[in-house]
Write a protein that binds this DNA or RNA. Structure first.
Lengths: 189, 189
DNA sequence: TAGGGACATGTCCTCAAGTACATGTGAGGC
DNA sequence: GCCTCACATGTACTTGAGGACATGTCCCTA
């Protein structure tokens, strides 16, 4: 479970409330690691009980800001350098592509156009943020440097998916003869 | 939940047992949609109860092969053309990159080298399968054409991640001055 | 013929994710 | 002064994912 470590990592930047963290997850981390507020509040109280974080201040509307402790900082560092990376890359878009042969060619074409548009949009959005960072708008703190690296991943991955969707539109649909020819594949990729 | 539709999609190619499906998920769909056998068997009995699939044949060791029904075929087609695509792209690799600034520079460099190696390996593996498909080794059936499209996504995405990991190694670590300069970022990406 | 390994199916339990529900406050505009 | 909206925190319930456990069979090889 990486939500725990995601929260610790964000809190390493400075104190924040559950509400703040939920917004940051939705705005910045959402595309690579979704997390809704119920999970976040629950995890925060668990982290608090474990001594990884503690209440930093109480604010206006029952607001509770948390601060990371030394134990928490040690834990997030340990995760980063010791725990094995889980490389699974869940993507419904790609999953669907295994089944494109079941789709009506016109539907598929329309689907791919929409996918291309979507991925391009996200890539451009990330490019915009990256350009702002490069112009120095977010300062030179080490966290923003890491943010820039993450943005670069988003730009590259989403652009590659946009290019893929564009390319897929050029693949001709199955001809009737091929459609008849339907053997079981031996054991492909 | 797309496991349901993934199973239906695979069964649309022809009858298969839970064991077969588990292997195909692990070998082919695993990188984009992991599924373990307990989930698969459970889902198969649910699909069977719902009339989307039915038992096609009984084999040697209690083997039960399922066949998709018309209702099942209609459902997977409906999913493909009507249901909105969930675009979240869960990636622990990218999530970690938000917190690179917490890592020791040498650890980080080593981490990025490992990541680059891993992503390159997967991209090459996909390239190998794609080349075999292009040589005609898997025939010309429409399913294998879709498989080729999915492979292309894998090649492009994993290569882009490998390139990203390589690029990230060229980003200089934070200098001590910048480290001191640690303001809260306004509201970045 | 004994033994190991791949084939084959399933249950149980725990934890993670996600939706819906529930509640209340402070600030700003009309 | 009222109303709305963003702020803010939580609980409850349902489903999904995943690891551990349990069981048995067929086939090949030594």
């Amino acid at each position: 479970m990486s939500l725990r470590h995601g929260l610790l990592g964000l809190l390493a930047e400075g104190p924040a409330s559950g509400y703040d963290l939920a917004r940051r997850f939705e705005e910045h981390l959402g595309p690579v690691w979704p997390a809704q507020h119920p999970k976040i509040y629950a995890e925060l109280s668990r982290l608090s009980k474990a001594g990884m974080i503690e209440v930093d201040s109480h604010g206006p509307r029952g607001r509770k800001a948390y601060r990371i402790t030394d134990a928490g900082r040690a834990e997030v560092r340990r995760w980063l350098s010791e725990d094995a990376v889980d490389h699974t890359l869940r993507s419904e878009s790609v999953l669907r592509s295994f089944f494109f042969w079941l789709m009506d060619p016109d539907d598929l074409h329309e689907h791919l156009r929409r996918e291309q548009r979507y991925f391009t949009e996200i890539a451009d959005l990330a490019r915009g943020y990256a350009a702002a960072k490069d112009r120095g708008e977010y300062g030179t703190a080490p966290q923003t440097k890491s943010m820039r690296v993450a943005l670069e991943a988003a730009i590259r991955v989403y652009q590659s998916l946009a290019d893929w969707a564009e390319w897929a539109q050029t693949v001709p649909p199955a001809t009737p003869e091929e459609d008849a020819d339907t053997p079981r594949p031996p054991t492909p990729a």
